[in-house]
Design a protein around this nucleic acid. Structure first.
Length: 912
RNA sequence: GGGCGAUUAGCUCAGUUGGUUAGAGCGUCACAUUGACAUUGUGAAGGUCAGAAGUUCGAAUCUUCUAUCGCCCACCA
């Protein structure tokens, strides 16, 4: 007999269980034993979205791990070759900024703030690598604490040697196909991070700013509006709509003037894209500091004058009055100048979205820079077809090769792709994959470092998403197309991640995989929501509302934490989390523990064989099938078969929350609250109890691996992790009649308990009960009802059947009922087709019963009248399906019978 | 400006193709408690399903509009 403590103590078992799993080697699919139901040949793969090595895992990561682990464990139990491949992401810019911040904080007071340049490239990178290593170790430990069944033997890192080969190979392929090019374009420049950033790394902040309207000079014919007057020292044109009557005749004219001390030559040009109704209808063109203006300038062959530098200060050249000033100071100075020169015509406050850098918060400047780009709109030949990278990305989803859950994100995906511009992949940071290009005079080598003297490698590094875009296949052996892992496990089955990185990552993986490898990276994309606090706010340090998964695991256990993250969450929707919620699931975990404890300590000793190994492990008889004896047996086995079937389906279609809710309701509300209580009364249920419990633990295992594994030790049959998923066997166990009869029994029991409770009868006191309509209930079940309700069933009327008309019910129940003689007060209720009454103690207050009966009669009457009006409505009776009408008629008959009984009882308690 | 989501009990949420008197958990109230479990049990109270109109015999569910909240994208100088 296993010796189980009274309460489940996760802290005592979780680490031991995880070690046991590790030791088994089963996280690696190559080691998985064949499953009796399956030869274990079908692969099921998930690659872990690699956490950034920027710190520790937050509750969002814990959600991701809980969901993916549940998917993988289910696949493993189903007999699949289940691979969950772990790894971490170097997260170039994020990690570098973090370390730069640390270095800055190390600055001694009074000194100039320390930057990476003070350390130099090599020493700085050493610091970053050290930091990344520490983060990595923490992250791996956290993954293990949560119970993640990741195959550590295949662990990858986006910046390791193997992945670097993949990155360089990919870069070379793009380059040779002409899809990576180097060019001078307007880029998003982060002046604090001192690097370019992609469009997706910009966060727009709502601010108010002033819109100024002015002329470049007194002699200039057109006024323009701008929120950034300081950039106007770099203007080379004014664009107007070609059909605009006001300015049409000016198109083509050139004006040379001095603007705030800077010499400008402004050409007036016609541009269809200019909105004549906005502002003055004229646009000052600043080619070097606006991507739209840059495009206009290239169409009209206008000169491009840089006026803002990479330090967000005005360049010393061309700036006139504002040379060398930070942009904001320059702006103020220009406005002053405009005002004193009498050129300022108008200024007004407007709402404005200020572009800022995601990582550093700096205001992003647009400026021209020589960078590497991936051309997403360039046509090329692929397998004989003309395609673009954009069209490849669209096709993979449009053809339904890739399913996105929830599917509303399909539209979001397409919108993003439609607006996609060439992807700037080079960064001026040090941490990351160095651009694999080498220069020597006019020569250029791409992909593999050339031998020989005088070669200089490109200084820039690659956008981190370039390497993580390769993740599904760079982790499986690509570019070696003969790699067994690549052949077996790609395309992966599910990509599970937060909807917030659909664009960043999911779309780029599709791009990389379809272009480089001619395969989709995954068949299903499952997008989970964000975890918010109990008030729906984002968790953040400044709000102090962060829930740390490790704290929760320490306090409530990993299983409870996992349940709270999975149950109640639907894909694509945010979920709210609170410590109370986790405590609730801790209670459930303990409930499951005690259910097992009850079953294992009450079953007959013959079920349990010799203890194996240490005292905790004994061996329990395996029950392959059972035969129900009583109604309760039939009911629970029938319900369980349904639960097995539904949970299996839910897991298959990735409805983990639904699976969990169903299991929770069955485990607590049916198996524990009813069947175990009945087992105490009916006895001799060892086989059924063990049969259900063992399978129930397996069903729960994907969601709560630790407690199920701990309990399963009692069976002495190895790890539950590689057990066989149960089979529903509905032909054998499903019994809808029994489910119906048992439901009636439950209603009676609840009704009797309700009567007792309302009549203030102490729960322990055994009382007499009159039950009318009991004849269709077997003596066994009547006895069960009596025991479950602490009653002695005195009398049951004999000659009514389930379909007995209303009139007979009232006539039969009136003969000889002890409750209706008026001498004793009684409490009566109508449950379905039956009437129950209990005799009340003499001192009982009749007004309580009267009030209760009146209230019941009122609701019954209201229901009666809605049913009557429905059934007297000819439209309803003629148009609704017959089955629906019949159901309504039956309801009416039942409520009429109930009313008759209730009214008679009201009379009996003294209401005339 | 374009799009998406949410709105159901005090709180957090279910409610699958329209058809029981709309459900659960937490919280609240009452009662109970020496063997599976107080991390418990039994029972109760609590909702005009955001609002309006429409379709239908019938709407929480379908359509349209409105309101409030949240998110994403674009960004006009």
């Amino acid at each position: 007999m296993p010796d189980l403590p009274k309460a489940y103590q996760p802290q005592l078992v979780e680490d031991k269980i995880y070690q046991k799993w590790l030791k088994s080697g089963y996280f690696n699919p190559d080691n998985l034993p064949a499953n009796s139901a399956s030869p274990r040949t079908e692969p099921f793969t998930i690659v872990l979205p690699p956490p950034n090595v920027t710190g520790t895992l937050h509750i969002g990561h814990a959600t991701m791990l809980a969901i993916q682990d549940a998917m993988i464990r289910f696949a493993r139990l189903m007999g699949k070759k289940a691979l969950w491949l772990p790894g971490t992401d170097h997260a170039a810019i994020a990690t570098q900024s973090k370390v730069e911040k640390i270095i800055k904080e190390e600055t001694k007071s009074g000194e100039k703030p320390k930057t990476r340049h003070d350390l130099g490239r090599e020493a700085f990178l050493a610091r970053v690598h050290q930091y990344a290593q520490e983060s990595h170790d923490t992250i791996i430990n956290q993954c293990k604490k949560i119970g993640s069944s990741l195959d550590w033997s295949r662990e990858a890192y986006t910046l390791d040697a193997t992945r670097t080969i993949a990155v360089n190979t990919a870069f070379k392929r793009f380059y040779e196909d002409g899809l990576i090019y180097r060019g001078d374009r307007i880029v998003n420049w982060d002046p604090i991070g001192q690097t370019t950033i992609s469009d997706d790394e910009i966060i727009y902040k709502e601010t108010t700013t002033k819109l100024y309207t002015f002329k470049y000079g007194p002699e200039f014919p057109i006024a323009i509006s701008t929120t950034r007057p300081e950039t106007k020292v770099g203007d080379t044109a004014v664009a107007v709509h070609p059909d605009d009557q006001r300015y049409q005749k000016l198109i083509g004219q050139k004006f040379s003037l001095t603007f705030a001390g800077a010499p400008l030559t402004i050409t007036i040009i016609g541009e269809d894209s200019v909105d004549p109704n906005y502002g003055t209808g004229a646009l000052g063109v600043t080619p070097a500091h606006s991507s739209i203006d840059f495009e206009i300038a290239s169409r009209h062959q206008l000169p491009i004058i840089r006026v803002i530098g990479e330090d967000a200060k005005m360049l010393p050249t061309n700036g006139g009055l504002v040379s060398g000033l930070p942009v904001l100071e320059a702006r103020a100075k220009i406005v002053d100048w405009l005002r004193t020169s009498g050129l300022l015509e108008d200024e007004q406050e407007i709402a404005h979205n200020l572009p800022t850098a995601e990582r550093t918060g700096a205001t992003v400047e647009s400026l021209p820079k020589l960078q590497w780009f991936i051309a997403v709109n360039k046509s090329f030949l692929k397998n004989g077809r003309t395609v673009t990278l954009k069209s490849l990305m669209q096709e993979a989803v449009r053809s339904k090769s890739i399913q996105i859950i929830p599917d509303r994100f399909v539209a979001t995906y397409f919108t993003w792709i439609d607006n996609l511009r060439d992807w700037c992949i080079s960064r001026q940071i040090w941490f990351g994959h160095r651009v694999p290009v080498w220069y020597r005079a006019q020569e250029i080598v791409v992909g593999i470092a050339p031998t020989g003297d005088g070669w200089v490698q490109d200084e820039d590094t690659l956008d981190t998403w370039f390497s993580s875009g390769l993740w599904t296949f760079s982790t499986l052996g690509w570019p070696d197309l003969n790699s067994p892992d690549l052949k077996t496990y790609h395309p992966t089955s599910v990509l599970e991640t937060g909807y917030d990185i659909l664009f960043f990552w999911v779309a780029r993986m599709i791009l990389m995989s379809t272009y480089l490898f001619d395969q989709i990276p995954f068949k299903t994309v499952y997008l989970h929501g964000l975890v918010k606090d109990d008030q729906g706010r984002k968790m953040s340090k400044s709000l102090g509302n962060i829930i740390d998964p490790l704290d929760m695991i320490a306090q409530y256990g990993a299983d409870a934490t996992r349940l709270s993250l999975v149950i109640g969450g639907t894909p694509g929707n945010d979920t709210r989390l609170s410590a109370e919620k986790i405590a609730g699931y801790r209670n459930f975990t303990n409930k499951l523990w005690n259910i097992a404890r009850f079953v294992l300590t009450t079953v007959d000793g013959s079920m349990v064989g010799e203890a194996v190994g240490d005292s905790m492990v004994s061996k329990i008889k395996s029950i392959n099938s059972v035969t129900p004896i009583t109604l309760a047996d039939q009911w629970i086995l029938s319900r369980f078969a349904t639960v097995v079937e539904k949970v299996t389906v839910h897991n298959h279609v990735l409805e983990l929350s639904a699976a969990g809710e169903l299991l929770r309701d069955f485990t607590w509300g049916e198996f524990a609250d009813w069947y175990l209580e009945i087992a105490k009364i009916e006895k001799d249920k060892d086989e059924i109890l063990l049969f259900i419990l063992e399978r129930l633990l397996i069903l729960w295992h994907p969601l709560m691996p630790f407690v199920t594994e701990t309990l399963y030790e009692s069976w002495g049959r190895g790890l539950i992790m590689v057990a066989n998923w149960p089979v529903a066997d509905k032909p054998r166990y499903q019994n809808l009649d029994a489910e119906g009869s048992f439901a009636e029994l439950q209603e009676l029991v609840v009704g009797i308990r309700n009567l007792r409770s309302e009549s203030k009868i102490p729960p322990k006191e055994v009382i007499d009960l009159t039950l009318v309509g009991a004849n269709i209930i077997s003596d066994t079940d009547l006895n069960l009802i009596a025991q479950l309700t602490k009653t002695t069933i005195l009398q049951s009327a004999s000659n009514n059947s389930p379909t007995t008309p209303v009139s007979q019910v009232s006539s039969t129940s009136s003969d000889g009922s002890t409750s209706s003689d008026g001498s004793t007060s009684s409490a009566t209720a109508v449950i379905g087709e039956r009437t129950i009454s209990i005799v009340l103690p003499e001192q009982a207050d009749p007004t309580i019963q009267r009030a209760r009966l009146r209230a019941e009669i009122t609701t019954a009457e209201r229901y009666h009248s809605t049913l009557t009006s429905k059934l007297t409505n000819a439209d309803f009776t003629s148009r609704a399906p017959v089955a629906v009408v019949v159901i309504e008629q039956e309801k009416l008959a039942a409520i009429e019978a109930k009313l008759i009984t209730l009214r008679r009882e009201l009379k009996n308690v003294g209401e005339y």
